[in-house]
């Protein structure tokens, strides 16, 4: 893993702040980097800002959403492009060609009145300059690669004629079709059965090895992160609260939210008969809290957690945690 340090940067996000309708700040102070060929998992509570972060990197924030502050830089050295505030023409050269994306709700990213094959073939013609027949052949090939039965038949189907998992695979095929440097996969395998999911994850591993593809994988399935990602970012209430090498973070979580999450997780455990939850609710998007955003639900909270913003602490060995407590004081404290 240490060899990754020498790899050039594919995506660098610094101090990103995103607001949605009415100027509510939904994502704040988010910084992370993904290097060439690296796979990073992004996990966290529902509504914590994962999708908004991904969409900002693609310039596709929802209506009313905007990047208030921070930088998003794609690539390294002479090929680096600053994406915050980029013009339309810059985005045209980046989306699909350099960053591929698979979104949470596949149907809303496809045109309902065109066949799915046509939509992918068209992209290959426009972005890669393929001729009609080549584009058709390559489309069928890509559909087969993502495990669709009868890829030639699927070519002629409209989005509404496909099941959730079939649509998701069409989107994956579109996302990798132009051999991007970076794939942003927001819950890209949630509609797939585990057999196909394993095949898709293997396909992505292959692309990382052969093409140096970098991966930002948003998922709620910690087993998938454990299997497929070198590093993990944990989000809570619009901030990254913990980051580091996957095995270390999952094996020895430092932030109280990550601890709570691991405490209720059942990674592939079929014998489990208790379904625990983290009591309480997360702050609403934009809700102002003077101190730590997890404090109202945190079993380790102390006076210092409530008074002022809690900065990110560098724990060394590539790990960070946004918590006033160190691992020693966590060990001493008995969670309330």
């Amino acid at each position: 893993m240490s060899s990754l340090r020498e790899e050039p940067s594919t995506l660098e996000v610094s101090d990103l702040q995103i607001s949605v309708a009415d100027g509510l700040v939904a994502v704040q102070d988010v910084s992370f980097q993904i290097r060439r060929g690296e796979s990073v998992g992004l996990v966290g509570e529902s509504g914590s800002g994962k999708t908004l972060t991904c969409r900002a990197a693609l310039g596709l924030l929802p209506a009313g959403g905007r990047v208030d502050a921070g930088r998003i830089v794609l690539g390294d050295g002479p090929e680096a492009v600053e994406l915050t505030g980029a013009r339309r023409s810059t985005w045209d050269g980046v989306r699909a060609s350099r960053i591929g994306a698979v979104f949470q709700d596949p149907a809303s990213y496809l045109n309902p009145s065109l066949t799915v094959g046509h939509q992918l073939a068209e992209q290959l013609r426009v972005k890669r300059g393929l001729r009609r027949r080549e584009a058709h052949a390559r489309t069928v090939e890509l559909f087969a690669e993502v495990g669709l039965h009868d890829p030639a038949g699927v070519f002629h189907q409209y989005p509404h004629q496909l099941s959730g998992g079939m649509l998701q695979r069409v989107l994956i095929a579109i996302a990798i079709s132009c051999e991007p440097e970076l794939l942003i996969a927001d819950e890209a395998t949630t509609a797939l059965d585990v057999v196909i999911q394993a095949e898709i994850l293997a396909l992505l591993r292959g692309l990382r090895a052969t093409h140096g593809l970098s991966l930002l994988l948003v998922t709620h399935d910690l087993a998938v992160v454990a299997e497929s990602c070198e590093r993990i970012l944990v989000m809570y209430g619009g901030q990254i609260v913990e980051s580091g090498p996957t095995d270390q973070v999952l094996g020895d979580p430092q932030h109280p939210y990550t601890r709570a999450l691991m405490g209720v997780a059942t990674i592939g455990d079929w014998g489990r008969r208790r379904l625990d939850v983290i009591p309480g609710q997360p702050p609403a998007a934009g809700e102002r809290l003077p101190g730590c955003r997890f404090a109202p639900r945190c079993g380790y909270a102390e006076a210092a957690c409530l008074t002022g913003p809690v900065p990110v602490t560098d724990l060394g060995a590539g790990r960070t945690s946004r918590c006033v407590r160190t691992s020693a004081s966590l060990a001493e404290a008995v969670p309330a």
Partner: peptide, 14 residues
């Protein structure tokens, strides 16, 4: 139909 596929573990369990 897939009621918990987009949920984190805690909300899934809820």
């Amino acid at each position: 139909d897939e009621p918990v596929s987009a949920l984190d573990v805690s909300n899934r369990n809820l």
